[in-house]
């Protein structure tokens, strides 16, 4: 069960002076139960790719298939397919419109005709997995605290019970504690079997948390793999607009000084090998 994107191309404003190629042949597979990060600079096409996963955009060339169904072949059932892939936009709390948090969370399932007990179950499930304080269900979504607002926004997408969750810059505007909690949440829905896709320009966060990383540069996927192989690739051939995380830069510097460590090694490993080396010298 997976989303398969192959040779996807997308051009905005075709035939006008503002024509711009956002995607120029991108392929990626997103399995359920996996956390895939799509990283790239501003304008690399990562948001365009995210919108294809949710069928907000349809392939102009190439294909997207969700659990074996090619979306272009099944155009009548777009809404049905769309429900399988929840899309959380950047600053999702800006999309609030309802009077209570509960109404906000019920919006998506109601749109797909879910009612009665099933609806209650959807809400309950969404509240549980988003970590939202259930006492806030009756509150005004505009009046609750920032962290809870972001959770309510997540719950309002999780309530459609998607099989895949795509998040566009989910950590934007959160403080460190908020980011940590959000990552735990994403890991837990992944462990429950959901496919998680995170679109971000934060390479450090992507390297530290995801199972697989796709790096986009000007509409082309330049590398895809686990954190270590992607870090190695980026060290060899830097990609525009992506900065190596400080710790990886430090490890790269150590390599030049004869200490060889994986680029994604933890702080503890680095200290151990440094002590070892310095101990020898003394």
């Amino acid at each position: 069960m997976s989303i398969v994107v192959s040779e996807l191309r997308h051009t905005y404003n075709e035939g006008t002076p503002a024509r711009s190629e956002a995607l120029r042949g991108v392929s990626v597979v997103i399995e359920r139960g996996q956390w895939v990060s799509i990283v790239g600079h501003t304008g690399s096409g990562k948001s365009t790719l995210a919108q294809h996963l949710n069928l907000l955009l349809l392939p102009q060339s190439g294909s997207v298939s969700i659990d074996g169904t090619d979306v272009t072949r099944d155009a009548k059932n777009l809404r049905g397919l769309r429900r399988r892939v929840g899309l959380v936009f950047q600053y999702p709390e800006q999309q609030f419109f309802a009077e209570t948090v509960r109404d906000e969370i019920e919006f998506a399932p109601l749109n797909w005709g879910v009612t009665g007990r099933e609806l209650d179950e959807c809400v309950e499930m969404a509240v549980r997995s988003s970590g939202l304080d259930p006492a806030l269900l009756g509150s005004n979504p505009f009046a609750i605290s920032g962290g809870q607002r972001r959770r309510a926004a997540l719950a309002s997408v999780l309530s459609m019970r998607p099989d895949y969750l795509v998040l566009d810059e989910p950590t934007a505007g959160l403080d460190a504690a908020g980011i940590r909690e959000l990552r735990q949440l994403m890991a837990s829905v992944r462990d429950e079997g959901m496919g998680v896709v995170q679109v971000t320009h934060d390479l450090e966060g992507a390297l530290a948390n995801s199972d697989r990383i796709l790096v986009l540069e000007r509409g082309v996927g330049v590398t895809c793999g686990d954190a270590e192989s992607v870090a190695e690739y980026l060290l060899r051939s830097p990609v525009q607009g992506l900065l190596m995380p400080p710790l990886a830069r430090f490890i790269a510097g150590l390599r030049e000084r004869g200490i060889h460590l994986p680029l994604t090694a933890g702080v503890g490993d680095v200290i151990n090998s440094l002590e070892e080396r310095l101990g020898c010298e003394v």
């Binding site: 504690a177 940590r180 400080p246 430090f250 200290i271």
Partner: peptide, 19 residues
Amino acid sequence: GFEEPLEFALHRELLARGI
């Protein structure tokens, strides 16, 4: 109570060990 970036943790540990 500030969140500690990884390189900060490394920095602190190395300082503490006198490295």
